[in-house]
């Protein structure tokens, strides 16, 4: 007999109060790129509770080492940092084998991207992207150069705080998430429109990595800790009986 999805496969419904609204005029580009109609809320089916599974052999040995993975004839310029943390669900359970992909500007605030025209210099030894899978504890780690802040066209003098972009793919399609990580103490955090549209101080705090002395590599790199929370599998008490009866 097929039944889909099974109890325990479904995820908690998304709390929209955790996220910036689609239409957020302070971030001007969102004005024409935000749907005007309400999202249609779906009870999850197999299509939503499943997701692609990735394997370690798809990744290369330097994929999580941004200091070396694009190095041509030397090391990239900038502050060497390790970034590490756990991917967990809303109940604190480890999300294992999650694909974590990161990208960022170099120490000058310049992206290696054909559309980035910023005057900050490209670094011939820095690419700015990496990827890894979480281990059985939901743990991930990578090494990189701390990115620089950079100006962007929103208001005429808006600057992005230093940040690293993250894309995370977990157990279910509903967990797919893109976010950005910031650095503790960055004075640009307070005036960033993209952070400012996050609806609560607590949720903003969740995007700011803390310096983590315990992760420092002596005489080599500082470390930052950044944990990520994805949606959790919900309990489906009694619902089986109800569904069985309906069939």
């Amino acid at each position: 007999m097929s039944r889909a999805p099974a109890p325990g496969d479904e995820f908690m419904m998304r709390d929209t109060a955790s996220h910036p609204p689609a239409y957020a005029p302070a971030y001007k580009t969102s004005i024409l790129r935000s749907p005007r109609n309400a999202l249609i809320s779906l009870q999850q089916s197999l299509s939503e509770v499943t997701a692609p599974v990735f394997s370690a052999d798809e990744l290369g040995p330097l994929d999580n080492d941004l200091i070396l993975n694009a190095s041509k004839d030397g090391l990239p310029i900038g502050e060497r940092v390790v970034v590490h943390g756990f991917v967990r669900d809303q109940f604190g359970r480890a999300v294992k084998n999650a694909l974590v992909e990161v990208w960022q500007a170099n120490a000058s605030g310049r992206y290696r991207h054909k559309k980035d025209q910023y005057i900050g210099a490209l670094d011939p030894n820095f690419g700015g992207c990496g990827r890894m899978l979480t281990d059985d504890n939901g743990y991930y780690a990578y090494r990189t150069i701390r990115p620089g802040p950079y100006p962007w066209r929103n208001r005429v003098n808006d600057w992005r705080p230093a940040h690293i972009h993250y894309a995370i793919s977990g157990d279910g399609w509903v967990q797919r998430l893109i976010t950005q990580m910031y650095f503790e103490g960055d004075p640009l955090i307070a005036s960033c429109p993209i952070l400012g549209i996050v609806p609560s101080e607590e949720q903003i705090r969740g995007l700011i990595a803390l310096q983590d002395v315990s992760g420092f590599v002596p005489l080599d790199s500082r470390a930052y800790r950044f944990d990520i929370v994805l949606r959790g599998h919900r309990a489906t008490l009694f619902e089986n009986h109800v569904q069985g009866a309906a069939q």
Binding site: S18, H113, I204
Partner: peptide, 22 residues
């Protein structure tokens, strides 16, 4: 009350290709 909040989403930005489609 112990339920953790999902990490806030942020835009993928104009340079999403670097990370996801270099």
């Amino acid at each position: 009350n112990d339920l953790l909040a999902e990490t806030a989403s942020q835009t993928a930005g104009p340079y999403v290709h670097i990370g996801l489609a270099p």
